[in-house]
Design a protein around this nucleic acid. Structure first.
Lengths: 194, 194
DNA sequence: CGTTTCATATGATGACTATCATATGAAATC
DNA sequence: GATTTCATATGATAGTCATCATATGAAACG
């Protein structure tokens, strides 16, 4: 019985990952359940053995994507000194590579716009954001020599700039201008503009 | 013949406005052409007398919304001294009022996420962004005593923070936390964190 | 005042999609 | 090895939507 249960759990995780990828690339409304199941190498009918409905899948896949994404971002960053850690985070988040690969990138710029309509996953989105901010806060506090409260506010605003910068960079047709947007936001966050 | 032509142009503008409102509130995919025409007090069939298709409507309504939105933001702001003008822009953009009324607010946080999928309106989005940045730049340059190039980069990043901050504030379930996000971004942009 | 024009309305059509009922076939259990 | 279980597949249904063909009725025009 274990093997079959394991198999099902594995399939569930696989669906979750495929969904997160497709949602980030094509949008939630632009991705059908059939798209997702096909991408997972399955057929559409089996979907409801794993999830209650599309919204249920969305909530789980958003959280899962935020978790694994956060894991990646902070995995090796924590090893560095605070100043370097913050610099690395900013450079990587606002990179061309991140811009060009939304399917494996941060879910926030890719999905928040759609989630907020109709209050979809508002609780999941909030919890995931809070966790990410909590994770980045120590580096910000030390790198900038800030009190805990000030560091929290600064971290929130830093995230806003990174998410907004990525959104703008992705929405622009001209690649040079898109690169310029990324560069400007990096310089701004690294306080290099004067 | 004039009266009828005028009438049609007026109807077209009205459809454009209704579409922009609904797109910003419910999203592009979440709004049907019937929704829009009904909101405009018309029936669905007449739509194609005014626009080629939904994408055509989207492009026009996004640009129109950006234009009128920009007009509102900068209308009375320009009258003030640069420092005060910038402060006003930040306070108004990152306000609860703006957060709670996306239908008459800036189209960027509301729509860019959906537009970037499939490269919809990438050219229109870029042009509108460039125009807005160009409009805000003088205030930033003077308020911050920056060279033209530095002012441009600073303006781009300021927009990123405002757009990202609004996106985050709107995506969060708890109103207190949402308020806190807005407040943090305002303080950050006004360089009040230390 | 009759005729034409055309802005808008009515009424299809075909495609797509979420969801559900039921079938199948391989693994697990006896 | 026969039977049961259940993960996944097949097939159906109902609803929605973009798009288009055609109708209507009022204003413009002669």
């Amino acid at each position: 019985m274990t093997s079959r249960t394991d198999q099902k759990e594995q399939t569930r995780q696989h669906i979750l990952e495929c969904a997160a990828d497709l949602f980030r690339t094509q949008g939630v409304a632009g991705t059908s359940l059939t798209d997702i199941m096909t991408e997972a190498g399955l057929t559409h009918g089996g979907f409801y053995a794993h999830f209650k409905n599309k919204e249920d899948l969305l909530a789980h896949s958003y959280t899962a994507a935020m978790d694994s994404s956060r894991e990646e971002w902070f995995e090796d960053i924590i090893e560095h000194e605070p100043e370097e850690a913050l610099r690395l985070l900013i450079n990587r988040y606002l990179s061309r590579d991140h811009r060009d690969n939304p399917d494996e990138g941060c879910p926030m710029p890719a999905l928040l716009g759609e989630l907020e309509k109709e209050g979809l996953c508002a609780t999941e989105a909030e919890q995931a954001l809070r966790t990410s901010i909590h994770r980045a806060k120590p580096s910000v506090a030390q790198a900038r020599h800030l009190s805990p409260e000030a560091a929290d506010a600064e971290t929130v605003a830093t995230f806003a700039t990174m998410v907004g910068g990525m959104l703008l960079a992705r929405s622009v047709a001209d690649e040079d201008y898109s690169n310029y947007i990324l560069k400007s936001c990096r310089a701004f966050l690294k306080k290099e503009i004067r």
